[in-house]
Amino acid sequence: MRPGTEGAHDRTPTTESLFTARSAGGRRERFVSALLAASAAATVLVTVGLVLTLIFEAGHFLVEVGLLSFLLDSEWTPGFRPARYGILPLLVGTLKVAAIASVVALPIGLLTAIYLSEYADRRARALLKPLLETLAGIPTVVYGYFALIVVTPALRSVLPGIEVFNALSAGIVVGIMIIPMVSSLSEDAFRAVPRSLRDGAFALGATRFEVAWRIVLPAAASGVVAAFILALSRAIGETMIVAIAAGDLAGLSLDPRIATQTMTAYIVQMSLGDTPRGTIEYQSLFAVCMTLFLLTLALNATSQRIVRRFRTVYR
């Protein structure tokens, strides 16, 4: 949690006691505060609804297919008879795309953050940061278009044997999409490192590079790792780019040149198709969705834990 999120609790005690004394009166005030509390509770209900929906819908599917074969079967062939529903091929496809995205986004995002926080002067930063944030605001369908129309043809002209729909192009573009996330979260971590640490290193004769690489980066390591994990989670949940550019072949191959179906792309394919509701084929959508939910939740929680546990507090 970031400093300051404690909100109302860090007010001075005098203010605190004042407002409890005052708000004890007034029925209207109590009504308003109940309304506000109810709104806050509603945000928790969203999660409860989400979890119940996923459990209920995916439950049917898992009872029918069996948890073990869902987790361990190496084939995902909902269209075949007999259909097989092993999540592994979709998971491999998802991780393949996310890995390619990480290879693009982690180094570039990290270097961008170092540049912005340690090299760029105030004016350059004021110009560059909003431009980079624009990259995060581009809708993912537009990225999908970019992947299919610009990146894929470019890759095909360089690497022969690459398919029209492939994991590489989608992965690269997902990576581009998450660069601003890596860079801005890492930069926040760098800027939390106190000036005195840098000044001390400079005074000992360190170069700018040595200060950035040996002083600032290790001091901000937990924040950077947390940023990486969050970005990975974002890459795993990304939908439209892979639905447009990665294709729909669910397989265990790690080849980045071939068509690859991710979990999200499967959910889109299933929702667009005319599979009747209530069939096991249709319900597989929810089981995939639940897997996606649990995976991203675990990553996000890990990221938050890292920030909380390993944050170096400077005074």
Partner: peptide
């Protein structure tokens, strides 16, 4: 709990909201 929950919700992939 409300705070943590909101942080977690912000990280849920958009497609999952579609299911809800």
């Amino acid at each position: 709990l409300v705070q943590t929950n909101i942080q977690n919700l912000a990280g849920v992939p958009s497609i999952v909201y579609g299911v809800l």
